[in-house]
């Protein structure tokens, strides 16, 4: 999809929503929705995007929207999609619809994981979009299973004894690929065409499709609001957030940085990793680098790029 062409399409998430300055969720959603050619039913799990876009009596959504609870957006949209299929099969409806469930990393990796897994396994014709900002930002930056190792969050604080989050992040995209659904992709807003192309594939897929998109959160990352998109590029250049897709089981790498940058390029501009640069935490940065390297080798191997 050409940017020029995409820019001409009507906004599906209008301005006037109350997301923070520099929040990646709005950017990601607007890019994804540009790839939809049908009226949509949008579902949101409880979280930043939900509380900021539909405050009664207002809505920033041009499409029908449903919020049910935190952990059940996938189940909720699977109910909507089933209603559509039923009414269509009965000849009570002939219009085409797109169905998209959106959750943050909390609603997708953690509390909504079961609901997501169930909906994908059942094969509903829907897109699931996770905007991953790496913590429960809506409730004030608590760690999630998507939080990177070492990050300082309000429930994995960097203290005198414990230097931030102790665990590596969970690879949700891989887990979704292991569901053997037709389309799974990991994307990033610094490559808008790649993101929109993936969203288009996701909407056009018959059956379930899963998109995991990195979304900067200046509040939680302790980073500059105006540098969010640049940070998502650094995430790809350091191979912290590789861009790839799994189409009918085929892994494909979508971005191979010309020169792989050290992980410190990703860690340094973010206040949540500040404590890692203390002399006593030097080994931790090395460990994180090793983990990223291993992960990158795995991705390259899976994508046949060795």
């Amino acid at each position: 999809m050409k940017l020029k062409e995409a820019a001409k399409k009507e906004e599906r998430l209008t301005g006037g929503h109350r997301l923070c300055s520099g929040c990646g969720a709005g950017t990601v959603v607007r890019l994804v929705m540009r790839a939809s050619d049908n009226p949509a039913v949008v579902g949101c799990s409880t979280g930043c995007l939900e509380v900021s876009t539909t405050i009664y009596p207002y809505t920033a959504w041009e499409d029908s929207f449903i919020h049910n609870a935190f952990e059940n957006v996938a189940a909720t949209i699977s109910g909507v999609e089933s209603a559509y299929r039923s009414l269509r099969n009965q000849g009570k409806m002939d219009e085409d619809f797109d169905f998209i469930a959106i959750g943050g990393d909390g609603g997708s990796y953690d509390i909504g994981f079961q609901s997501l897994s169930g909906a994908m396994e059942r094969g509903h014709d829907m897109v699931y979009l996770c905007y991953d900002n790496g913590a429960y930002m809506n409730t004030g930056i608590q760690r999630s299973s998507a939080t990177p190792k070492g990050a300082n969050t309000t429930t994995s604080p960097a203290g005198e004894v414990i230097p931030g989050k102790q665990q590596y992040r969970k690879e949700l995209t891989d887990i979704m690929a292991a569901h053997n659904i037709p389309y799974v992709a990991q994307a990033s807003p610094f490559k808008p065409q790649d993101l929109m192309k993936k969203a288009k594939k996701a909407f056009e897929t018959e059956g379930p499709a899963f998109l995991n998109v990195l979304a900067p959160c200046p509040r939680g990352w302790r980073s500059k609001a105006e540098e969010g998109i640049e940070l998502t590029k650094i995430a790809a250049d350091t191979c912290f957030w590789p861009l790839f897709e799994v189409e009918n089981g085929e892994w494909k790498l979508n971005y191979n940085p010309k020169a792989k940058k050290p992980i410190t390029d990703w860690l340094e501009p973010q206040g949540r990793f500040k404590h890692l640069f203390k002399p006593e935490n030097e080994g931790l940065i090395e460990e994180i680098q090793e983990h990223v390297d291993e992960r990158w080798e795995t991705i390259l191997h899976r994508c046949g790029e060795e």
Binding site: A75, S78, G79, S82, S115
Partner: peptide
């Protein structure tokens, strides 16, 4: 569905639809 929580959630989605 894979649980009763999802049963009620999907039923809510279907009814709202």
């Amino acid at each position: 569905v894979e649980s009763e929580h999802s049963a009620m959630s999907a039923t809510v989605g279907a009814s709202a639809a």
